[in-house]
Design a protein around this nucleic acid. Structure first.
Lengths: 343, 343
DNA sequence: TAGAAATGTGATAGCGCTATCAAACTTGAT
DNA sequence: ATCAAGTTTGATAGCGCTATCACATTTCTA
């Protein structure tokens, strides 16, 4: 039996207290809690009683330090949690990771502008097993994370030249190409693009997809408003007049988000513009309201749910040290155009 | 000088390595990093060079264990992060806490249904300083958290009989009362209520507020649809026909969320019902789209931004061990009715 | 210039836990 | 009954860090 000495302590109930109460060694208590099958039934029961009686809570910092084991915690960094895409993806990801016992720590990087290193320090203090970046565009920030490369990093979005350990690409450009192609094939000739949030690469990609499709079908690409405003409902309402003023011949308007498109639809109603007869309108993203709106919004859906699932499995495989080259049928991750009443 | 011995280590660069490289004691390195002003400039520079050269990253588990200090991390538990209210509140809260160097750990409790204790274990492993509950309704879950009462707990929402250490109430009932009163004063007589998500207390409170206002003005309270469906756009569109069928005399419809109301507006357009001339419609929450919609939605705004700010200051005061009874002008937290074109 | 006070630095002893290994106790085959 | 092999248990020695105190050094006061 281990020496029973008086220690000055933080007041917390420790393994030692439990061991003394149960009349066993600390190691046996530790085992009873971590690997119960390596302890006899009799002692295990005794120990359980002691744990309950004393209200013992393990000190995970000590456990981590002693075992140098990881924490089953992954961090997700994304600029804007409330984005519809982020919602779908996160929801799917978290569900899958929670099943495997992982806790997800969400960080909205927006709040840590100029506080990045502080935030990272706090992050690393959690003994993370991995970091996921979702549509993080700040390359210097990514590099800063990678510098202190102590855990695997999975990036969702544009691949920064293989900087990250793993990358799951999302092809916004392709999605917009497909959508534009559908509109073109419907016979529209004077197709404009309404792009907000132009400062973000992801919107540049959407613009690029439109541009490419227009060129491919020999259509003019000058009818573009590219604004540095939030891509929300009011911006849509606000910018429609400019579009109509500049290009009265417009017969279709492609918006880079469903919110913009929805704002445009409202403005059309205010101005008695009949959609799609006078003007066809599309969004991007297949948000919840796009199939309920009046008229229902033609849009393109990116498979964020599947991407979330794929991200989770890729990450879990990597953490389990299986092959990192996880071959999956990526066709399941292709964008889907939803043609509705507004085109 | 401290004995330089060979240790078996996890391979990580330790304080000891930095100390040896810089030719100082470990304690000096520790101080140079934690309390730089207690170390001479000369040694501090030397140590900084050693830290950079070796790429030293502190092991926070060890630091926590040795100092028994807290982590500047608070956890927020909420059933649904993507809720508009949660967004506003969280955004405001996080901004204020980030300024004070706190990192916010977001947990969507939905993902941990039946995994609560596992999730809590993971949570506690972070040496949290506090836990915030936002509109958590599962009382047994709250009790479970409180059982292991190791950190202050701040609850936002209904007060569970003083179970939590601190409580910031949000009066949904009052907000709905105010809204209903406005509608009544506009002269509407046949006022119905469309309530979804009836299983949640927060929606019961809204229903209650409507009921109370109707009684106060001697108006009938039977025109209610109380559905166990998600309070979203499509439910609004879907349930409007039932309302109209049951009560053709309806001249105003109050919806328990803006999403429901927006769905109702769309359905009105499909059915050529002129709002507000044939039917007035209101929402609840003042979501972004409610002022852009056509017609713009009359609704009531709860001051989640202010509540977030108040929560942050209350929590910070508590953590700093100032007076916990933080008196604030709570009138700033009162709901605000926004009368718009739809009523 | 001596002595007191303030400041800077390092050796030590844990924080609460687990890896490790040796000791004690089973079990089963001879 | 005996020994080999398996199983269960506990004492020990750290994990990497910081609180603490003692000692060394500097600065200030009389």
């Amino acid at each position: 039996m281990q020496e029973i000495k008086k220690r000055k302590t933080t007041g917390q109930i420790t393994l030692f207290d439990v061991a003394r109460y149960a009349g066993v060694g600390t190691m046996t208590v530790s085992r009873a809690l971590r690997t119960p099958d390596r302890v006899s039934d009799k002692l295990r029961q005794k120990i359980q009683i002691a744990v309950d009686a004393l209200g013992y809570k393990p000190n995970v910092a000590a456990s981590l330090l002693a075992s140098a084991s990881a924490n089953r915690v992954i961090a997700v960094i994304t600029p804007k949690i409330y984005d519809h895409c982020a919602q779908l993806w996160l929801n799917s990801l978290q569900t899958h990771l929670a099943k495997e016992g992982y806790t997800t720590l969400l960080i909205e990087s927006y709040h840590y502008y100029k506080l990045e290193s502080q935030m990272l320090d706090a992050l690393y203090s959690h003994n993370l097993e991995a970091i996921l970046l979702f549509q993080v565009e700040d390359e210097s920030f990514i590099k800063q994370i990678l510098q202190s490369k102590i855990v695997p990093i999975l990036n969702i979005g544009k691949d920064y030249d293989g900087l990250t350990n793993m990358n799951v690409g999302i092809d916004d450009s392709l999605a917009m190409y497909m959508l534009t192609e559908h509109v073109i094939k419907k016979g529209y000739q004077h197709i404009g693009l309404l792009c907000a949030n132009q400062e973000y690469q992801i919107f540049q990609q959407r613009l690029h997809g439109w541009h490419k499709a227009m060129l491919a079908y020999h259509l003019p690409t000058h009818r573009v408003i590219n604004a540095a405003k939030p891509a929300n409902f009011s911006t849509g309402s606000e910018l429609l007049p400019d579009m109509l003023l500049n290009w009265p011949e417009l017969d279709a308007l492609i918006c880079t988000t469903d919110e913009l498109a929805c704002g445009v639809l409202y403005e059309c109603q205010r101005r008695h513009i009949r959609v799609p007869y006078q003007l066809a309108v599309t969004g991007f993203g297949d948000n919840e309201f796009s199939q309920v709106s009046f008229p229902a919004l033609t849009t393109v859906a990116l498979p964020y749910k599947e991407i979330g699932e794929y991200s989770a499995s890729l990450l879990l495989d990597n953490l389990k040290n299986k092959k990192v080259t996880h071959e999956t049928d990526l066709s399941a991750l292709a964008p889907v155009v939803r043609l509705r009443a507004s085109v």
